[in-house]
Computed example of a mutant assay.
Amino acid sequence: MTFWKLQMRTAQMMLEAQTVMSLRLMGMAGILPADPGENARMVTEKQTAFAQAGLAAMGAMMAGRSPTVIYGHALTPIGRTTRANSLRLGKAKR
């Protein structure tokens, strides 16, 4: 069951990431309104999310966890970031 949950979390993260990329590209093209700092934000947030993922995975590895648990720990910060971005960018600007 753990493997199934990880597959679903991965699929959700990938769908949210695609949504974020599409919304950001539409913002860059001027189709949607975009915040002025969005381009810089999309770079820095990846660095933060991947650093957190690496630390979480390393901690789980050092604790002797199974590969699926290690992957789950690494996926959490990345999924949290993609989810937050898809919600934030998907809201209509007024």
Rank of each mutant, 00 (worst) to 15 (best):
T2P: 04
V43S: 05
T82M: 11
A40M: 09
A29P: 03
A17N: 06
P67R: 13
M14A: 10
M61Q: 13
Q7P: 05
L89C: 02
V43D: 03
A51V: 11
M26F: 07
K91D: 00
T82R: 07
A84S: 08
G54F: 08
R24H: 02
K46W: 01
L6E: 10
L23Y: 01
T19G: 07
R24V: 13
S22R: 15
I70H: 03
M62A: 13
E45R: 10
A40N: 12
G54A: 14
L15I: 09
M28Y: 14
L87F: 10
T76G: 03
R80D: 13
A84W: 01
G54N: 13
G54E: 11
A84N: 06
M62F: 11
I78G: 07
R65F: 04
T44G: 09
L55Y: 12
A29H: 10
R88L: 00
L25T: 11
N85Q: 03
L87T: 06
M26W: 04
Q18K: 13
R24W: 03
L23T: 02
G27Y: 03
R80F: 01
M42R: 04
A53C: 06
L23H: 01
D35H: 06
P36N: 07
M14Y: 02
L55I: 14
A34Y: 04
E16I: 03
M58G: 09
S86K: 10
L87I: 13
G30I: 12
Q7C: 08
G30A: 10
P36E: 09
A84Q: 11
L25V: 06
M13P: 00
M13L: 04
A17K: 09
E38V: 05
M61E: 15
T82A: 13
A60H: 12
R24T: 05
P33A: 05
G64R: 11
I70S: 07
E45D: 14
F50N: 04
F50T: 07
K93D: 11
G79Y: 14
S22M: 15
M42F: 01
K5H: 14
T44S: 03
W4Y: 10
A34M: 15
